[in-house]
C-alpha cells in the first residue's frame, strides 16, 4: 500500500499578534508579549491508501490541528503535508484543486450544518460548485448520498433543526461523501452522540469503508471507539506523536508510558460485585502548551522518567513493530494488566 498522506516534519505554531500596549509594555519590561503555542511540533506520519488511522490524545494535544492540516484547512508553519504527493495548500494558505479529495466531518453536527439551508442544498452545494455534478442531476445525486448514509431521500427538503443529533451527523457525512473524496478526516465524529446512536454511526463508518474503500483519519479521545474502527493508532501528547503502530500492538502492548497510563485511566466495565475497581490515574495535570516542559513533554508525570528525560527530546524509534518516542522504550517493561 502506498502512502496517500505524507506529513513530513510538520509544525503548527499559533501566534497571537501583540497589541500596541503589549509592545510598548514589553519594551519597558512591564509586561510580556503573547507567547506562541506549538500546537503541532515536528510531526511526521504517513496514512496509507485505504487504511483507517486513529489519532488519540487529550484536550489540547494538537490532534484537531494536525487533522486540519491533513484536511488542507490549515497550512503548516513548517514542514509539509502532502496528499498523493501534492501539497494541499499552495502558498499563502490557498487551497489547491486536490483539496476536494479530502473531506472533513466535525464533532458537533448542530454547528456544522447551516440552519437556514435545506438538507438537499447542503449536500448539493459542494459538488455543483466544483462541477462534479450538473445542477439538473443534483437532486438524484442528493438522493443517492442520503440513502448511502441510511436516511430517507424524502428528507432533502427539510431543515437541519428537524433532525436528531445522530441524523444530523449522517447528513454531515452525506455532504462529505457527495464530494467523492478519497479520504475523510473525522474529528470526534461520535463524541456528542448517545451510546446507542454512537453505535449506529460507528457502524456507518465501517460500512462506508467497506463499500467505498475510503481512507480515514479518525480523531477521538474515546479509546474504545478508536480501537474499534482503526487499523493503526497514533497517540499524541502536547503536540508530538509519542507512539504509533497497529491498533492491536498499541493497545495490547503499549511501549510508551503515556500510552500505558492513558489505557489504565479508562474505567473498565465492572460486571462482578465482588471485584473492586482499582483506579490508576496519571499523576499531575497536562502542562500548558504555552510553556511545555523541556526534553520529553511527559517526563514530569512519568513514573519511569530519569535525568536524561528532562533534557533530551526523544525521537520516534522503531521498537517491536511500532514507533515510540521514549528514551527508555527498549528497557521498560510496561506489560502489566492488558486491557480487555
Amino acid at each position: 500500500m502506498s502512502a496517500l498522506v505524507d506529513v513530513r516534519a510538520a509544525s503548527k505554531v499559533f501566534r497571537q499578534p501583540a497589541t500596541l500596549v503589549e509592545r510598548i509594555g514589553s519594551a519597558f519590561g512591564v509586561c510580556e508579549l503573547p507567547r506562541p503555542v506549538h500546537a503541532v511540533d515536528d510531526v511526521s506520519l504517513e496514512i496509507r491508501n485505504g487504511e483507517v488511522l486513529g489519532l488519540v490524545g487529550e484536550s489540547g494535544c494538537g490532534k484537531s490541528t494536525l487533522g486540519r492540516m491533513i484536511a488542507g484547512i490549515l497550512p503548516p508553519s513548517a514542514g509539509s503535508a502532502l496528499f498523493d504527493g501534492m501539497p494541499l495548500l499552495a502558498g499563502a494558505g490557498r487551497p489547491v484543486k486536490s483539496t476536494t479529495r479530502v473531506q472533513m466531518i466535525f464533532q458537533d453536527p448542530f454547528a456544522s450544518l447551516d440552519p437556514r439551508m435545506r438538507v438537499g442544498d447542503i449536500i448539493a452545494e459542494g459538488p455543483v460548485a466544483h462541477g462534479l455534478v450538473s445542477k439538473s442531476a443534483s437532486a438524484a445525486d442528493v438522493s443517492r448520498w442520503l440513502s448511502t448514509v441510511g436516511l430517507d431521500p424524502q428528507v432533502a427538503d427539510r431543515y437541519p433543526h428537524q433532525f436528531s443529533g445522530g441524523q444530523r451527523q449522517r447528513i454531515a457525512i452525506a455532504r462529505a461523501l457527495a464530494m467523492r473524496p478519497d479520504m475523510l478526516v473525522c474529528d470526534e465524529p461520535v463524541a456528542s452522540l448517545d451510546v446507542s446512536i454512537q453505535a449506529q454511526i460507528v457502524n456507518l463508518f465501517l460500512k462506508l469503508r467497506r463499500d467505498l474503500g475510503l481512507t480515514m483519519l479518525f480523531i477521538s479521545h474515546d479509546l474504545g471507539v478508536v480501537r474499534h474502527v482503526s487499523d493503526r493508532i497514533a497517540i499524541m501528547y502536547l503536540g508530538r506523536i509519542v507512539e504509533i503502530g497497529t491498533a492491536r500492538s498499541v493497545f495490547e502492548r503499549p511501549r510508551h508510558p503515556y500510552t500505558r497510563a492513558l489505557l489504565d485511566s479508562v474505567p473498565r466495565l465492572r460486571i462482578d460485585d465482588r471485584v473492586e475497581v482499582d483506579f490508576r490515574p496519571i499523576r499531575g495535570e497536562l502542562p500548558s502548551p504555552l510553556d511545555p516542559p523541556a526534553g520529553c513533554h511527559f517526563h514530569m508525570r512519568c513514573p519511569h522518567a530519569n535525568e536524561a528525560c528532562a533534557v533530551q527530546r526523544p525521537t520516534l524509534l522503531h521498537v517491536e513493530g511500532r514507533e515510540v518516542a521514549c528514551l527508555r522504550a527498549t528497557e521498560l517493561d510496561l506489560s502489566g494488566e492488558a486491557p480487555p
Partner: peptide, 24 residues
C-alpha cells in the same frame, strides 16, 4: 442489553456493533 452491546469495548474490533435501531 442493547446499551451493553453498543459498547465498542465489548466488541471485536472492526466488526459491526450491535446497534439499537431508531431513537428515543
Amino acid at each position: 442489553r442493547g446499551l451493553l452491546d453498543s459498547l465498542p469495548s465489548l466488541a471485536t474490533p472492526g466488526q459491526d456493533l450491535r446497534q439499537i435501531p431508531g431513537a428515543m
